[in-house]
Nucleic acid binder design. Structure first.
Lengths: 195, 195
DNA sequence: AATTATACGGAGGGCCCCTCCGTTTTCAAG
DNA sequence: CTTGAAAACGGAGGGGCCCTCCGTATAATT
């Protein structure tokens, strides 16, 4: 019992694989600008695929976003590990947040993705959102353990703050401004409350 | 010259005034929950008014939001003035931000309104958004003058941060969490950079 | 009561969401 | 090489919302 061979599974159909690829490529292009109104029908059109096919591959908007940005999320998670080993606690945290900002600046759709993920994450914990919370959680715990930042802010809180600040940046050159805001926030985390 | 009588202006039509009022009431109700998908047609339906009438009174979504929340914005602006006279600089700033959060918690639509305003504010400076930047600008300048916070964060920056953080709060009881985030931010503003 | 500036309402064209199902394609067994 | 069924495809269709336009209704004025 258990690992039943489940009969010889057919080889996945060629068109299935092909269309999935087309959809992911098209989605990445459509989401690039990160405009909030990115329409799924536009993705299907660009992929030259029926709308039904899109929905069969990715039943929800979130599922599509997740698939499109999985790679990026994993990259950020890895970066957190690297930084945890090579940098002092607070610096690691700060640098990781900066990296997030840079990534979002390049792939603006990720921001929408993350915002979407948070929206529904309460119940579904959609998207690789928890990958990120885990990653930053490690950095956070480390800094707390070192006594360098306050201990009442959770990883979710931190990501909320980060994403929120990014959400507000849509001027052409928003990166420096948001970076400054995030730096202020980190300063606040590290502020000595007892003067 | 100047104040030309411009011909005897007709008295405004009764139905015009009545419908405007109905629309504002309906909008306030529909926007209460602050759900991002608040539809203007829903507002018109609730006001028992044609959709055309809604658009004639408020040509854009922003215009409607502005009219609905004008009172609240002015209230916050006044509060800033009061606090500036009665509280120490940093405390005033902090308390004003807390008041914002409370206000948003009650009238969730205000958040959407502000976010919308920022979206288009670059050119249009829609909504009473600049009322708020002016208000918080005073508090900020005061604290900077007193040498109690850093001087490279603008009023717009601060509002961006505030609104961003609020945008990320949709759990039932998000107020304490966001308040904590904002407090961290203020701590960061007031952090002594030179150790 | 007649006149006319003002307002009203909702049909209509566009775009999008998502589901459902008849048709087509692919795989693999004979 | 057939052939049959599982697996995919695609897009029509029902439902919403956005916003404009214009024929109709009505309040203020004469």
């Amino acid at each position: 019992m258990g690992a039943a061979p489940k009969k010889a599974t057919r080889k996945p159909r060629a068109d299935f694989v092909r269309n999935r690829e087309r959809l992911l490529t098209a989605a990445a292009e459509v989401f690039r600008s990160g405009s909030r109104d990115a329409s799924l029908e536009a993705v299907a059109r660009r992929a030259e695929v029926g709308i039904g096919t899109l929905y069969r591959h990715f039943p929800t908007r979130e599922a599509l976003f997740e698939a499109v940005y999985r790679r990026e999320v994993e990259q950020l998670a890895e970066l957190a590990e690297t930084l945890a080993e090579s940098e002092p606690p607070v610096a690691a945290l700060r640098q990781w947040l900066h990296a997030d900002i840079r990534m979002i600046a390049t792939k603006r759709g990720m921001l929408t993705a993350l915002a979407l993920a948070i929206d529904n994450s309460c119940d579904l914990y959609a998207f690789s959102f928890h990958h990120l919370t885990r990653a930053v959680g490690v950095l956070l715990a480390r800094a707390v353990a070192a006594g360098e930042i306050r201990d009442d802010i959770t990883a979710e809180d931190l990501l909320h703050a980060l994403i929120g600040m990014c959400l507000m940046g849509q001027e052409p050159d928003w990166v420096p401004g948001v970076t400054r805001l995030v730096d202020v926030f980190v300063d606040g985390l590290a502020a000595k409350r007892d003067r």
